[in-house]
Structure formats: C-alpha cells, structure tokens
C-alpha cells in the first residue's frame, strides 16, 4: 500500500471521513485543556504580568500560520510534479486556515505589544514579514477565485506559493536574520536556558498540539469540500457539454 493511493479522490474521501472525527475531538480536547490550564492555572510572569497568558493563543497560531504555508508548498510541488488533484485541493483548503491563524497572530500580538512595547504595531522584521505573509495568503485565495480553469488556477497558485515561501521562512527566522527590532526570539527552544519556563511550557505544548490537530482536521474537511465542489462542477459541465 502506498501513500499515493490517497491521491484517488474516492479513496481520500473514504479514508478522511473515518479519521476527521478523531482529529476534531482530539483537537477540541487539547485546545480546551491547554487554554484552561494556561489561563486559569499558571502564574503571572515576573516581567510580562498576566499578558503572558496570551502566549497560549499567539504562539500556536503563529506556528500554524507559518507551517500551513509550508504544507501548501509541499502540496503544490506534488501537484506540479505528479499532477494529483487532491494535492492541489489540499493546498487550496489550507489557505483560509492560514489566513485566520495569521490574523489571530497579528491581533493577539498587537494586543500584547501595546502594554509591553507601548505600541500596537512596529515595522519590526518579524511583524512586517508576518504582515506580508498574511497578504500572500489573501493573494493566494484571490488567485484561486479569479481563475475559472481549476488546473490553471492550481498551476499559478503553486508558483505563488513558491514565491511566498520566502516570506514564510522570513516570518520564522526574521529575528535571527536581523538582530534588531522589538520582537523577542522564539519562545520555544531545545536549549533549556532559552526555552520558556516549564510552568508556561507544559500548557503551551498542550495548546500547540491542539492547534496542530485542528489544522489537520480542518485541512481534511476543506479538501473533502473542494473535491465535492470540483466533482459537482465536472458533472454539470459534462451535462451541459
């Protein structure tokens, strides 16, 4: 059995229909526990006070916002190389999720930044690259909507996805590329000295796990939707033809 078997829309619909409820239920559990634990059961930070509680939404959303684009890049490359429609539709399905995650990151970041930095927004390398990533997401969705032929749309959005990957990388590593700006380094690190304290780390890990599971569940649901819409359009076109 090969992974490529799931490039068959019928097999994909059958398989994904079975696993979506498990991913959705696990996501709800991990997000609920992570946010409850983080909001109610963790102490204030000695520097940030109670604003540290924003980390449980901001960091998981940012992580998904960046990695959703990389998932779209991989799916787009598979489309360009192997021409599997399910792959192109999975990339399309991930884009709205990326938009919402980027928006959550920008809003929670602004709400945190106002009391901590004294400003809602700064043209800091990481913030700016994140804003550009958000605009790329909007452009990606707009390009899909603007082109009638689905194969042409998949081709062009795949190219856009490759170009946008530069900004997804910059969003992740801007703090390292330019050692300036307001945004601090990554909250999570394998280096225990740089990683957030355990009391914040454990609920954060729960919340991140929940967001990852939610992303998988929503991409599966979105891909199922796109497959059905495509199939319906094909049937209608055949009837008209």
């Amino acid at each position: 059995m090969s992974l490529w078997e799931y490039a068959n829309p019928v097999k994909f619909l059958s398989f994904s229909g079975k696993i979506v409820p498990w991913f959705a239920a696990s996501a709800a559990f991990f997000i609920a526990v992570g946010l409850y634990w983080g909001y109610f059961l963790t102490p204030d930070d000695y520097k940030q006070g109670s604003t540290v509680k924003i980390i449980y939404l901001h960091v998981p959303a940012a992580l998904i916002a960046i990695n959703a684009w990389f998932m779209m890049l991989v799916a787009s490359l598979i489309w360009l190389i192997r021409r599997h429609h399910v792959s192109a539709l999975a990339a399309k399905a991930a884009a709205p999720i990326g938009i919402v995650m980027t928006l959550i990151t920008l809003i929670t970041g602004a709400l945190w930044g106002q009391p901590m930095w004294g400003t809602w927004w700064a043209w800091d390398p990481r913030l700016t690259s994140f804003l550009i990533l958000f605009l790329f997401y909007l452009g990606y969705v707009g390009l899909w909507a603007a082109i009638d032929n689905p194969d042409t749309a998949a081709d062009l959005t795949s190219v856009l996805c490759m170009v946008g990957s530069v900004f997804a990388v910059m969003s992740r590593y801007a703090v390292l590329f330019w050692n300036q700006g307001l945004h601090q380094g990554a909250s999570l690190s394998l280096d225990k000295e740089k990683n957030v304290a355990d009391v914040f780390y454990q609920p954060l890990l729960m919340s991140i796990t929940g967001f990852v599971l939610l992303f998988v569940a929503l991409v599966l649901i979105g891909t199922r939707t796109e497959i059905r819409i495509r199939r319906a359009s094909a049937l209608l076109a055949r009837e008209r033809g």
Binding site: S50, T51, K53, I54, L57, H58, T108, L111, P115
Partner: peptide, 13 residues
C-alpha cells in the same frame, strides 16, 4: 491592568 489585552486576545482568538 492587562485585563483588556488578555481578555481581548482570548475573545478575538
């Protein structure tokens, strides 16, 4: 004093 920032983040998110 950070109630607006925290509650606003959770509400919006």
């Amino acid at each position: 004093k950070y109630a607006f920032a925290v509650l606003g983040s959770y509400a919006a998110g």
